[in-house]
Design a protein around this nucleic acid. Structure first.
Lengths: 151, 151
DNA sequence: CAAATCCCGACTGTTTTAATAAGATATGGG
DNA sequence: CCCATATCTTATTAAAACAGTCGGGATTTG
């Protein structure tokens, strides 16, 4: 029902966590899982897909972990979601890739609605990058300080 | 994964079907199910919710069926989806109604993303009415005729 | 070598989905 | 008044998806 599964949610959280530690060498999944309150084993499964798609790189062995595959400004939330949840499509007949077309697709009025929904979701998710999120986090942090000051 | 279930899809199809027969007296579920290629029994369950929410009215007995609860221009696709799929919310913490807030909601960067997604979905679904769909169907029909003409 | 860490596949319990089935209730027409 | 046609309601179910858990293997640092 237009719900994101934990895959997408956890994945974005984890990627954001990695973005917050960019330039500090590899970050272990254990620490990500602890900070974000996610099962480490489950996170392993999710990150596997992210690695295969190149969104993160892994460093094996002790002191190993994960680093972002490219700069935060080059990683869109849409990239993450597509890897973890599959192509964006409220219904299969308007999938971004391989749309399983029904016979009446050309003249289906219902279909045009789902296309609009898909486009609007993709537009939002592709307009936000990990860099954007880092900036937003800074702003929220500033507001929070201000708020605390008045208490 | 941001998928609509058949409830939403079938529901919109069924409501659109009723809209196409507005003013013709009650339309039986059987005929709707046949035209739209949906299991009649399953459709019964879906329409039950639509009736309870006033989007359709029922007429029992022979020659009975369903009619729209108000004019097509007053029924938004968002209304239908909310009844059949629940409040629009890619994740629970940004539900349109009773958002189950997590403790960190105020300062959660991830959350703001899901809010934007929710708003963009709601905006699309609330901008389209059954009336809009009827107009679109007319246009598609016209195009189709034109296309057929050239063959 | 030992500890930390990534990597991989199999298994499990719960929930959701998408129906199906069976019967109760209502009503217009003959 | 009866019956075919409908709406209503509840229960059951098969299959899939979801959200992990578990056990073990491979790789690297100290």
């Amino acid at each position: 029902m237009l719900k994101l599964s934990t895959k997408g949610r956890y994945g974005v959280k984890a990627m954001f966590d990695l973005a917050q530690h960019v330039g500090e060498g590899p970050t272990s999944l254990k620490s990500v899982a602890e900070r974000q309150g996610i099962s480490e084993h489950y996170l392993e499964q999710l990150i596997s897909g992210l690695r295969k798609s190149g969104l993160v790189k892994s460093v094996r062995g002790a002191q190993g972990g994960y680093i972002l595959g490219r700069e935060p400004s080059k990683i869109k939330i849409g990239d993450i979601i597509r890897v973890l949840e599959g192509p964006i499509a409220p219904v299969d007949c308007v999938s971004e890739e391989d749309p399983e077309c029904c016979a009446k697709a050309e003249f289906c009025v219902t279909r045009t609605i789902w296309e609009k929904v898909r486009n609007s979701i993709a537009e939002v998710l592709d307009s936000i990058t990990l860099e954007t999120m880092l900036e937003d986090a800074k702003k929220l942090e500033a507001e929070r300080s201000l708020y605390m000051y008045y208490i």
